[in-house]
């Protein structure tokens, strides 16, 4: 009920919640069929106490935004391997704003060239995680940043 300032427990350690669970939608946009990486992240975040809504492969910006809206998610994690991130991410951000969901934090994972990272951050992405980022790093980032849109 009360949102207490979040301290980051040691990674991997469970934390029985005195605050509502953080909800994150994980989705893959684009045509490639590799979901191993995103599934590892999904399990890792679950084990860290998140409520992970796995939206799966082959999502479009439209379907992702609909999912975020109906799931009332706090975060959206996008995995993009196809190289089309510079068109897909802006589209998602635009649709989120259009839907009145600008409070939702967006993180991007996948294969993103170094030079595109600042552009994505500029557009409003909260953080870009390269392939093989250790889960605890993602967890720590989300915990430290979890806005409280839904915990008001």
């Amino acid at each position: 009920m009360y949102l207490v300032a979040t301290t980051v427990p040691p990674s991997g350690e469970s934390e029985i919640m005195d605050k509502p669970p953080v909800r994150i939608v994980l989705a893959k946009i684009g045509l490639d069929g590799h979901d191993r990486g995103i599934k590892v992240v999904a399990r890792g975040l679950r084990d860290a106490g998140f409520h992970v809504i796995y939206a799966g492969l082959w999502q479009t910006p439209e379907s992702v935004v609909r999912t975020v809206a109906d799931e009332d998610a706090d975060w959206l994690g996008l995995s993009i391997l196809s190289g089309a991130h510079m068109t897909l991410v802006p589209r998602v951000l635009h649709l989120l704003r259009q839907a009145g969901l600008e409070h939702v934090g967006v993180i991007v994972g996948g294969i993103i060239p170094e030079s595109d990272v600042p552009k994505l951050l500029e557009l409003g992405v909260a953080r870009v995680f390269g392939p093989g980022t250790p889960i605890p790093e993602i967890v720590e980032f989300l915990r430290g940043r979890t806005p409280a849109p839904s915990a008001s």
């Binding site: 679950r46 796995y54 939206a55 799966g56 439209e62 799931e71």
Partner: peptide, 21 residues
């Protein structure tokens, strides 16, 4: 939901059609 961590992997929806329109 995990009784230990409170975490959950909610994986039902990806089996359902997404009809954003």
């Amino acid at each position: 939901q995990s009784p230990l961590t409170g975490g959950a992997l909610l994986g039902d929806r990806f089996r359902m059609p997404s009809r954003p329109e």
